[in-house]
Amino acid sequence: MTTGVEFLPCIVAFCCVHSAYQAADAAGRMRIPYPENIIMVHIPCAGRVDTLHILRAFENGADGVVILACHEGACHHILGNIRAKERVERANALLREIGVDGRRVEMRTCAPNDGSRFARVCHELEEKIKELGPSPLRKHA
């Protein structure tokens, strides 16, 4: 960035308690590090996340938002992850309407025991958002 300070992206991750939340615990047990600037919001099912929650995260200054859900076909609530995907798509569209790269919102899946995948996904997300740069929707200083 112009200031010369390294850009540390702020990412909000909605973590489904049946998959990503447990995967994060697994990563902890295996001591696999991942970026600490990922804010993990504990949710009962990916389907709980509302489009509004995603937009609000951006209003508050997030550079990226991700819903971490169960693999397709493995949702405890059958279609919760599909619902979440629909909302991610809607949030993408709403952001594009504003003129912001829709890739800032994403949905990823992982299994509850897959700690290494959780950590890897977190690294990938950080890389991606670093490439996209700081969110143009951050509050003006």
Binding site: L52, L55, I98, K139
Partner: peptide, 16 residues
């Protein structure tokens, strides 16, 4: 629900 989403989207759009 839609009121909340549109309000948020407009605030973001103005900020953009």
């Amino acid at each position: 629900k839609e009121v909340g989403i549109l309000a948020s989207q407009l605030r973001l759009a103005f900020r953009r």
